[in-house]
């Protein structure tokens, strides 16, 4: 079984904790001058997203998690699974609702996503930073209002609801920052 020494700890390293794959967020070396050396790590559980802290005796070995990030194309959802494809090998992978999580509301067919695989199964899905999505429903646009002040809610084709300026109409394509869930601008589509 692959393992890492705490000396190899750094942000992004994937390790197993209590049977779950986790990623190290940050780690700190702590040692009293005449005492035991510790490595204190802040760790994200990749299944649940929860952040926990662990303190290791410096130099201990920790089991490595077979976790890797790959770029896959989102194909479709059958209601139970979200299907992705490797655009080079055409190999397909199905992600559960749990793995897709909040990303679901930004997923548009054919967009490329970063999929985290654990033992070759999708564990988490990160949508593109920016997505172009059509407005499915919103109050009628107010002509001439380009102030952007105030705004109104708009429901997008994927079901996500974002605040948009008053002048936006149904059918328009919008550019959205998925990291903040905020409207960036009108798309050129």
């Amino acid at each position: 079984m692959a393992s890492y020494s705490t000396n190899e700890f750094k942000g992004g390293l994937k390790i197993m904790i209590d049977g779950d794959p986790c990623a190290i967020i940050e780690n700190e070396f702590v040692k009293p001058g005449k005492g035991q050396a510790f490595v204190r790590a802040k760790i994200r559980n990749l299944k649940t997203g929860r952040v926990v802290e662990r303190t290791y005796k410096s130099g201990e070995s920790v089991e490595a998690a077979d976790v890797m990030d790959v770029d896959l194309q989102y194909l479709y959802s059958d209601g139970e699974f979200w299907h992705f494809m490797d655009t080079e090998t055409f190999e397909q992978r199905a992600a559960t609702a749990e793995a897709v999580g909040d990303a679901a509301k930004w997923l548009k067919e054919q967009d490329m996503c970063e999929v985290t695989l654990w033992n070759d199964n999708p564990l988490a899905v990160t949508p593109p930073n920016f997505v172009m999505l059509a407005v499915a429903d919103t109050d009628p646009g107010v002509r001439g209002d380009t102030s952007g002040g105030g705004g109104k809610p708009a429901t997008l084709e994927t079901g996500a609801v974002v605040r948009v300026p008053l002048f936006i109409d149904i059918g328009e394509i919008l550019k959205i920052d998925t990291r903040t869930g905020e409207y960036v601008g009108r798309g050129k589509d």
Binding site: E53, R54, K57, E60
Partner: peptide
């Protein structure tokens, strides 16, 4: 104190 040590003797 929510401190979880691992591998301490």
């Amino acid at each position: 104190f929510d401190i979880t040590p691992v591998g301490l003797p």
